[in-house]
Amino acid sequence: MNCPAPDTLSPGHAPGGRVLVIACGALAREILALTRQHGLSHIDLQCLPAQLHNRPEKIPEAVRRAIHVARHDYDRILVGYGDCGTGGLLDKVLDEERVERLPGAHCYAFFAGLDVFDAEAEAEPGTFYLTDFLARHFETLVIRSLGLDTHPELRDAYFGNYTRLLYLVQDGDPALEDRARAAASRLGLTYAQRRTGYGLLESRLAEFAPRGTDA
């Protein structure tokens, strides 16, 4: 869940200028891995707390503040969020600030791909989704945040309408697969997984590669 503080990042220099990604902390590991993998040293990352997902109404203004602080130091800014439960309010802010975000309603969609996610959701509407981040932090972000560690009897109240847990796999870490399977068992759901890699997150960041490089 850690993300380097903005003032600890070394400014990159590349054709097209410096790029800042303002992202949900839940994407920090993936974005840093992609910038290293594709040699995107001119891209810096600033994370906002992953816990904002519990208060999505706070996301738009938190993103706006980050844009205002960074705007004069960067040539381009990309916001690493989907709509993420803001009900279109994040898009309204980004239209006003003239900044783009990742495509899709949430990270499940841009990891899986928009069409694939829609097909999965239509095939089985009662699906609870996990990413690598959520598999890694399932105990904290799901069990404890919902109080299921102290009141396990509430499980069916929260998850009674779900039928399966679908793990969208980014890295292919067997330990995370074990955690995802354990999460499905704990919630009383059928387990399924789909290898997505980084999906639209990777292809979108690749668009910021310096000219003449293979990203």
Results as ranks from 00 to 15, higher is better:
C84S: 13
D44I: 00
L141F: 13
R194N: 11
T131M: 08
D83C: 14
D75T: 14
G12Q: 07
S185R: 14
V63S: 02
R195D: 11
A28I: 08
N161K: 13
L89C: 14
Q193H: 08
I77V: 15
A183Q: 02
L90H: 12
Q193D: 06
A157S: 05
C3Q: 03
R55P: 01
R155W: 03
L205Q: 11
S10K: 09
V69C: 09
L165M: 06
G199M: 07
Y108K: 06
H53W: 01
F128G: 02
T213W: 08
H151G: 00
A157D: 08
A123R: 15
L165S: 03
L9I: 12
T190C: 00
L130Q: 01
D173K: 04
R18P: 07
A66E: 03
R64A: 14
H137F: 12
L40D: 06
L201F: 07
D132G: 02
P174Q: 04
A184V: 03
N2C: 02
V69F: 10
E207F: 11
R101Y: 07
L148D: 02
D132R: 01
G199L: 02
R181C: 05
L166I: 06
R211G: 13
R18D: 04
G212E: 12
Q51T: 13
I77H: 11
V169H: 06
G199S: 10
Y198G: 03
A180R: 03
E202T: 08
T131R: 04
A121R: 13
E177P: 00
L168C: 05
D178L: 12
F138D: 04
A50N: 00
A66L: 07
G12F: 11
Q170M: 08
P15K: 06
G172A: 11
Y191V: 09
